[in-house]
């Protein structure tokens, strides 16, 4: 990122190639539709590009990138009218507005397989727990970095991660 800030276009291409897939999956599993995921994915990278001149390496680039992604997701949920009851509530779910379909057909097909059960379980996680799991699995962030990216403390991040794994473990075992 520093090289890109200093004018090296190739540096950004390498950066993008390294992070585009994990970030896309993180976004995809946080929203309902692939179209929205692509739009958010592009929006996140545009913010990275715009911040080029003022970028300061205060943390890992990955942490910074997923912080942007987290903030962008929160904005998306609010703008979409999705009311987040409580990010930390284990039973909380993103309440869908009336008229929206449930799982899309793609996810319904995946649910018929063992891996699909995992995907379904991930989608069923509370937003905060799902986010913590995905940041860990897709972004490779540590507990402290998850806390920094989501604006919480390490204990809360650790708790969310633990609960997410427990639920996924239960779903896979069933």
């Amino acid at each position: 990122m520093l090289d890109y800030r200093d004018g090296a276009a190739a540096a950004f291409e390498a950066l993008y190639a390294r992070h585009k897939a994990p970030l896309f999956r993180f976004v995809l599993r946080s929203v309902r539709e692939r179209g929205q995921a692509e739009e958010l994915h592009q929006d996140i990278w545009m913010r990275v590009i715009e911040a080029r001149s003022r970028y300061q390496p205060q943390a890992r680039f990955t942490t910074w990138l997923y912080t942007i992604a987290h903030n962008r997701l929160v904005d998306h949920w609010r703008r979409s009218g999705l009311r987040i009851v409580s990010l930390d509530d284990e039973e909380a779910q993103l309440e869908e507005p009336a008229g929206n379909p449930g799982l899309n057909p793609e996810r319904q097909a995946q649910a018929r397989q063992g891996l699909e059960r995992l995907a379904h379980a991930i989608a069923a996680l509370p937003p905060a727990q799902r986010e913590a799991f995905l940041l860990r699995e897709e972004g490779g962030l540590s507990v402290e970095e998850i806390a920094a990216a989501t604006g919480t403390n390490a204990e809360a991040a650790k708790s969310r991660l633990r609960y997410a794994l427990a639920k996924l473990r239960q779903a896979v075992d069933d």
Partner: peptide
């Protein structure tokens, strides 16, 4: 769980 997720995570 993580292993299974890595098998699942192929979207780009």
């Amino acid at each position: 769980i993580r292993r299974r997720y890595r098998e699942l995570a192929r979207e780009e």
